[in-house]
Every structure is written in structure tokens, then in C-alpha cells.
Design a protein around this nucleic acid. Structure first.
Length: 596
DNA sequence: ATAGGGTTAG
């Protein structure tokens, strides 16, 4: 039998409430007897309540009395909750029946937010105390209860699921929904949406889609929001065909897509480098009188910017204005970011000016784009000067903006300035700040300082990510600290941080730079998936060795190049770093030299 | 209830 949460009419709810609050005959009301979870006691226990105006400490020591107290406060959820909260401060340890009692009251009165936080407590409690079983709590809640007459108790299911989801305990939430009760109780669609949305946000797309299919089969009726999440999920996977199919599905069940569904699709297309199509969909929506807001235009503009079609982006901007929509700071920042990425600083600044002249305030996001662009264009000193100017003008600059400045300072060898600046402002550093500064020390030829900062970072409880390790590993290799680099790689693996292709590339480069080409070769041969960068690092390693004495190595380099071409790997398609491309040219030049 | 930008390596 399937129950739906909250689906009972409010009339029934009100009459439930009336009969509940009027009565003094407890045995008629499951709420009273089960709330005390003391079926072995006779109801007469509750007819003579003790004085409930005082919070005597002796009351707190006794579960029975706590339950009794909660019972008397059952019609006053506010007092019941504050009494319940105080118990903890007084050293009372909650158990299944006391949780059940307060949860019942919160359910009954529909205090859903309090219910959610109660379940957060319950989960925390169950994590600390292995003997505390969630299913026993639910057994207690529903013990002897006819759910048909006490629909409100079903809210507890949603509360628990929501608490799990907000703690990212997805498996527990799904397991609970699918298997815990004798019969499947469908979640409220809001709870369900919350679950699948969080799954998508955490990149658990396939789980989200699986759960969606499961619950549809069980009878859950999706709403607009559900469909928007599912469209987003398909787009995140790059599965645009299925994203479109959601619209067919909506048509089949007679749900008209709302503007969120449309916008989600438009954004998904643009994020997948299909901005032309995204724009077409936008225009189509517009022609069918479906509302299209500034958000959708931002997605299209951002999409064209990512595809380096700045003129298209700008034409969308003009089109939007023609439609009478007013551009906001997001629209402008999309354009500014686009021009910054294509290193067209003048244009970016011109748009920034025009934004300000329209009375739209700039912000740290826009400023960060511009500062970053300045740095990319080799104007590190302008980054610092501009940053100071902007800050003087009163614009709030956040941790990201600071990192851009740190990076500019570090890239120009001024890691100490960056460190001093940090001290001046008392900024709480995050992983990216530390990575930037560690890189700064490596660039400055101070590997010991870099290592020291790495340790500081860990002592602060920050967990270095693969980028941090890559920066430090390559910095240690470059600065003749190969042993420390290798130790760090071991430590990285111990910490469960996965190496990526950049790590492999840096290991090969590092070993080769130490003259350990054989070791690098063994490492290279042990790799299953080799990227173009990894091949080039190995080729380059072979080439580093003296040409005449080690012609054998160059033969190997040629073989690698050959292998790459056979696998349709283009050695010219190397990452964005200029140095790598120069490396490739070196390889080719050497090879040409060798073959002559 | 619904969604948005910028930063660290390559």
C-alpha cells in the first residue's frame, strides 16, 4: 500500500487537530499512548500529570517523567521543544522514546523545519551511539498506529530523508526510502526533489536518474521542479538527447514545461558547447510566449563566450535589450569574462565602464576577471596597483580576488610580498591560496619554504588536493629535491589523493631531469592511459640526453611519436601551457636533426 | 523550493 505524504486535505487535518485537542480520553488517541511509548503502562498514568511549570532536575533524570511532561506540552509545540532542548543542557540523554515523543509533536503541528533539525540531532546521536537504531525510532513512532488516521506522522519519513540528504548521506536516504518499511512509503515530491537535486549537485547523476526511474515506477508523480532537475542531470552527463526527451515525457503526462525547465535546457545546451542550439531554443520559447528571463540570456552569452564567439555573445546581448529586458551584473560579467578570456582587455574594460555608467555596481567577481586578465597578459604590477585602487574605492574584494593578486605577486617572484599582504589583512587562507603561495616559493627557488607552508596548511586542517600536490611535487623536482618529491608522492597516495595525468607527466619530467630516464621509462610503460602530455614528457626526456652518445634514446622518441600518430594523438594538441608546446618543437627539431 | 559568474598546475 502506498501512502503519500501530506496528501490529506487540510480539512481532515483540522478536524484531527480539533478532536485531539478537545479530548481528555487518551485511550482513543494513538498520539497520546504511543507518544509515551509505554504501552505496558495503563493510561491512568497520564490522567494525573505532575506539576509541569517547573523544570526540576529530578524530572530530567527519568524518561517516564520526560515523556509525561512532553505529553502535557503536546499542544504547545514551542514549550515542548524548548523543554526538550533544555533537557540536553541539564545532562539528560535522549533515547528512542523521548525522540519519538518530540518528533510526534513536531509532526502533528507541522513544524517541519524543527523536525528537520531534530532529525539532524537524531542522526548525530546514532553516529555516536551504535546501539541507537534509527529503525527502532520509526518502530516506536508507528507502534500500534493506524497511519491512515495519523497521516501527519508520515512527515517524520520526509524529515529523516531530508536530514540524511543535507548531510550528504545519500545511500542511507535511498536505502531508507526503498527498503525500510514493510510497504514502500512514497516521499513527498519536495523531499524527493531535494534528494535528486543534491545528488546532481554532487555529480551522482546516474544515481539521481536511477532513483527517479524507481520512484516513478512506484507511483511518485514528478512536478515541474523534478523535471527541471532531470533535464539538468541529463545535460550534466552531456546526454542532450535524453534532456530533450524529458520534454516529450512531460507532454505525455500533460505537464507544460515552465520557464525553469526551458532555461535549464538552454543552459545545458550552452554548457555543452551547443550555444547555437541553446539560442535557438531560447528564441523558440520566446516565440511561443513562454517567459524567457535574463538568466537564460546569461547562459547563452556565457556559452558563446566559452566557445570564443564573442561577436555572437554580443549580438545576444543586443537582442536581449531589444526584447526590453534589462541586463544585470551577471550579464555584464559574462561578457567581461569572455573578453578577459580572449585577452581583449580594452573591450573588457569598455564593457565594465558601460556597466557602471548604467548604474550597475561592479563587484569582486568582475574585478577578479579583470585582474586575472591583467596577470595573464604579463602585467603583474598592474594587478597589484589596480587591486589597491579598487579596494580604496570601497569595493569589497573577497578571497578569490586576493588569490589573483597573490598569484600575480608569486609569478613575479614576490612570494614574500604575498605572504606579507596576507598577514596585513588577516585573511583565512583556503587550499587555493596555499597552493598559489607554495607555487610561489617553488618559483622563487625555495623548496624548503614551500614544504613548510604545505605542513602549515595541513596543520590548519586543510586537505591538499591533487593540484597542491602537483605544484609541490614538480617544484621539488625542479629545485633538486627529488627525494622529497618522491616521499611526497608516497604520502599523497597514502592520503588517498588520486594522481592525475598531470601528476604522471610531472613524475616523468622530474625523473628525466634527474637523469633517471630508465626509471621514467619504466614508470611511463607502467601507465595504462597516457595523454599527449605524458607522451611528450617522455619524448622530451629522451631528447634531453646527449644526442650523439644516446642516439638509442632518440630512436625511442621517434617510436613514441610514431605510436602517437598511429593512435591519432596529435602531439601539437598539448595543454594550454606555452612551454609544453616549445618542448614539442624541441622534440621535433631534435628528431629532424637526428634523421639527417 | 527551483539557478548564475571569477582564483591554484597543465
Amino acid at each position: 500500500m502506498l501512502f503519500r505524504f501530506f496528501n490529506f486535505p487540510s480539512l481532515i487535518h483540522r478536524s484531527l487537530f480539533k478532536s485531539f485537542s478537545k479530548t481528555t480520553r487518551f485511550n482513543k488517541f494513538r498520539f497520546s499512548s504511543t507518544s509515551l511509548a509505554l504501552s505496558s503502562y495503563s493510561d491512568t498514568h497520564f490522567t494525573k500529570p505532575s506539576n509541569f511549570s517547573s523544570f526540576d532536575s529530578d524530572i530530567t533524570s527519568n524518561t517516564f517523567q520526560v515523556l509525561q511532561k512532553l505529553y502535557f506540552l503536546r499542544n504547545n509545540p514551542s514549550q515542548a521543544l524548548s523543554y526538550f532542548t533544555q533537557l540536553n543542557q541539564q545532562g539528560f540523554s535522549y533515547n528512542i522514546s523521548t525522540y519519538a515523543a518530540i518528533i510526534r509533536i513536531m509532526c502533528y503541528w507541522g513544524w517541519l523545519r524543527k523536525l528537520d533539525s531534530l532529525f539532524l540531532d537524531v542522526i548525530a546521536h546514532s553516529k555516536q551511539d551504535p546501539s541507537f537504531k534509527i529503525h527502532e525510532l520509526f518502530d516506536s513512532l508507528f507502534e500500534g498506529v493506524d497511519v491512515n488516521q495519523n497521516h501527519y506522522l508520515l512527515r517524520a519519513f520526509d524529515g529523516f530523508v531530508k536530514a540524511c540528504v543535507s548531510l550528504n548521506m545519500f545511500d542511507e536516504a535511498i536505502e531508507f526510502l526503498l527498503h525500510t518499511r514493510r510497504s514502500v512509503i512514497l516521499p513527498n515530491v519536495l523531499t524527493f526533489n531535494f534528494l535528486i537535486n543534491r545528488l546532481v549537485i554532487h555529480d551522482e547523476i546516474d544515481t539521481a536518474l536511477f532513483v527517479y526511474e524507481q520512484f516513478k515506477r512506484l507511483g511518485l508523480i514528478p512536478n515541474h521542479y523534478t523535471y527541471a532537475i532531470i533535464i539538468k542531470a541529463h545535460c550534466r552527463k552531456g546526454d542532450l538527447e535524453n534532456a530533450f526527451r524529458v520534454f516529450d515525457e512531460m507532454k505525455e503526462v500533460g505537464v507544460n514545461p515552465d520557464s525553469y525547465c526551458n532555461t535549464t535546457l538552454i543552459e545545458g545546451l550552452c554548457n555543452n558547447y551547443k550555444s547555437d542550439l541553446g539560442y535557438e531554443v531560447l528564441q523558440h520559447c520566446r516565440s511561443t510566449a513562454a517567459s524567457v528571463d535574463v538568466y537564460a540570456y546569461t547562459a547563452v552569452i556565457r556559452g558563446f563566450c566559452n566557445q570564443m564567439q564573442l561577436d555572437r555573445a554580443e549580438s545576444v546581448f543586443l537582442d536581449m535589450e531589444r526584447q526590453g529586458l534589462v541586463p544585470d551584473v551577471y550579464i555584464f560579467s559574462a561578457l567581461i569574462n569572455g573578453y578577459c578570456k580572449s585577452r581583449n582587455l580594452d573591450k573588457a574594460l569598455a564593457i565594465h565602464d558601460s556597466m557602471i555608467s548604467r548604474g550597475i555596481e561592479t563587484n569582486c567577481v568582475v574585478i577578479s576577471c579583470i585582474l586575472h586578465c591583467l596577470n595573464e597578459m604579463g602585467m603583474a604590477s598592474e594587478v597589484v596597483a589596480t587591486f589597491e585602487n579598487i579596494k580604496q574605492s570601497g569595493v569589497f574584494l573577497d578571497e578569490v580576488a586576493y588569490n589573483v593578486v597573490f598569484n600575480a605577486l608569486c609569478n613575479s617572484g614576490k612570494v614574500d610580498d604575498a605572504m606579507n599582504m596576507r598577514e596585513d589583512i588577516d585573511l583565512e587562507l583556503d587550499i587555493k591560496h596555499y597552493t598559489t603561495l607554495i607555487n610561489g616559493y617553488c618559483l622563487r627557488g625555495k623548496p624548503v619554504e614551500a614544504l613548510r607552508l604545505f605542513k602549515v596548511m595541513e596543520e590548519k586542517g586543510l586537505k591538499p588536493d591533487v593540484v597542491t600536490y602537483n605544484v609541490l611535487v614538480s617544484g621539488l623536482f625542479r629545485n633538486d629535491h627529488a627525494c622529497e618529491a618522491i616521499d611526497l608522492l608516497k604520502y599523497m597516495a597514502d592520503q588517498g589523493v588520486m594522481l592525475n595525468s598531470t601528476t604522471h607527466k610531472m613524475i616523468i619530467e622530474g625523473l628525466c631531469s634527474q637523469g633517471k630516464v630508465e626509471e621514467a621509462e619504466a614508470y611511463f610503460n607502467g601507465l595504462e592511459d597516457k595523454t599527449v602530455e605524458i607522451y611528450c614528457a617522455m619524448m622530451n626526456g629522451y631528447c634531453e640526453i646527449d644526442l650523439i652518445e644516446k642516439s638509442d634514446q632518440l630512436r625511442k622518441a621517434i617510436m613514441l611519436l610514431d605510436a602517437m600518430l598511429k593512435m591519432n594523438m596529435d602531439p601539437r594538441k598539448i595543454g594550454k601551457r606555452r612551454e609544453t608546446q616549445v618542448t614539442y618543437q624541441d622534440v621535433v627539431e631534435r628528431l629532424v636533426q637526428f634523421s639527417v
